[in-house]
Design a protein around this nucleic acid. Structure first.
Length: 400
DNA sequence: TGTCCACTGGAAGGGAGGGCTT
DNA sequence: AAGCCCTCCCTTCCAGTGGACA
């Protein structure tokens, strides 16, 4: 675990979870948010804030940074508490309330169980505890659009109306979203409450990314280990990629790992190039690896069709193959409706390409293509499909 | 211009599995 | 032990649809 990389002083600094002392090119946004949030130090309720910006534009870092500063300015959290929830990690209404509750409730014997209670009960228990001390609670809901997608707006309704029931304390919400349009689908009442203040985080440009990388790399690396063009190269790659600073830092970190493993004393552009490929491949294999076995079987059906000279298949083709191989594998067979749903999930994950297309009289269906060759190799090597080694032959004799 | 295909996509609901409450 | 509740995964049902074809 603690094997030291001779190139790196402090690797933690390159991790996206690290909150630096300075957040370059976000001074304006910090100032805006601080102005809104500052009244909480005198127990006045700040407006709710909605923060919008693409991945890696510093939204989470800025908010966490402000939370840290707020804590410093407020002795023992006497006037306000800062609560952070990531709605992608905790994605059910119960889970969100459970997490908020247990960050507020200090007495462990009174904490909310992670399952078992009705939502109503969690609501009322939470309200009771929030109102116990006269305080401002700032609740940050990161990736708020994820929760809305899955659960609708019940939970936002609760959180934005809770102040009407509270007698002492007040709750302020900071919502963070990648998707600027997500509020369009909210109930108008909730929409206006949630978005009392709106702050936009624009993507970083190449120059700004370079500044960020320079700052961090000075702290993270030993002197002289970065070859001159490396930082601008990482910045340029990530600027193409929607100005994602997280991506840029990942590139640098992985590049340094690769250099270390090769016992190279200098990190070069070649390492970065290699890192880029590695990141992309890792992302895909992680997704494929963690699919449920049914999703894997659907994906396998798409692979088989591709290999059998049917590179653009439709839902019906996939389902036929799916049915057949799940018989061979002796697993349960899902309905076509469900398989169609799994296909559209795979599409959303970016593993396959599926677009709805109409063939006139021949009906309307999805035209499905495999995303990449890597996916094919990954899924074929899955232990689940050992039995299908000679599927091609099987198919010729028994299918249709 | 209307028909009709092969689905899509939404909704409702079931049931298993986790766990609390009485 | 029986009765709840929430979540996840799934089925069933059905209205809706883009566009080739008659």
């Amino acid at each position: 675990m603690d094997k030291r990389n001779p190139l790196v002083k402090n690797k933690r600094i390159l991790q996206s979870s690290y909150i630096p002392e300075q957040l370059p090119h976000r001074e304006e946004q910090i100032k805006e948010i601080v102005e809104i949030v500052a009244p909480s130090l005198t127990k006045d309720k700040p407006s709710n804030i909605l923060i919008i910006g693409k991945t890696g534009t510093g939204k989470t870092a800025v908010v966490k940074y402000i939370g840290k500063e707020l804590k410093k300015a407020d002795d023992n959290e006497e006037n306000c508490s800062f609560i952070y929830i990531n709605c992608e990690v905790v994605d059910t209404p119960y889970g969100i309330l459970y997490n908020i509750g247990n960050q507020i409730i200090k007495d462990e014997t009174k904490s909310i169980p992670f399952t078992g209670w009705s939502l109503d009960r969690v609501f009322s228990e939470l309200t009771k505890y929030v109102d116990k001390e006269n305080k401002i609670y700032i609740i940050v809901l990161d990736e708020i659009d994820r929760s809305f997608q899955k659960n609708g707006d019940d939970i936002f309704y609760f959180l934005t109306t809770i102040n009407e029931v509270l007698e002492q304390s007040k709750v302020s919400i900071i919502g963070i979203s990648n998707n600027p349009k997500f509020t369009d689908f909210l109930d108008p009442k909730i929409k206006s409450r949630l978005g009392e203040e709106k702050i936009i985080f624009p993507p970083y440009n190449t120059v700004q990314l370079e500044d960020i990388l320079k700052d961090r790399s000075e702290e993270a690396f030993e002197k002289g280990v970065l070859s001159p063009g490396v930082i601008s190269y990482c910045a340029a790659l990530s600027a193409q990629d929607m100005g994602d600073a997280r991506r840029a830092l990942d590139l640098l970190r992985i590049a340094s790992d690769i250099a270390e493993r090769n016992n190279d004393s200098i990190i070069t552009e070649a390492h970065v190039k290699y890192a880029k490929n590695k990141i992309e491949l890792d992302a895909v294999s992680e997704v494929v690896r963690t699919l449920t076995s049914q999703s894997k079987t659907v994906l396998m059906s798409i692979v088989i069709n591709t290999e059998n000279d049917n590179p653009t298949m439709n839902t019906g083709d996939v389902f036929a193959t799916y049915k057949h191989i799940s018989e061979i594998l002796e697993t349960s067979t899902l309905t076509q409706r469900r398989v169609a749903g799994l296909i559209s999930e795979l599409d959303m994950m970016g593993i396959i390409h599926a677009r709805v297309k109409s063939f006139g009289r021949a009906g309307r269906t999805r035209e499905i293509e495999l995303g990449s060759k890597e996916v094919m190799d990954l899924i074929k090597s899955d232990v689940l499909f050992k039995k299908l080694k000679n599927y091609k032959n099987v198919k010729q004799t028994t299918l249709i």
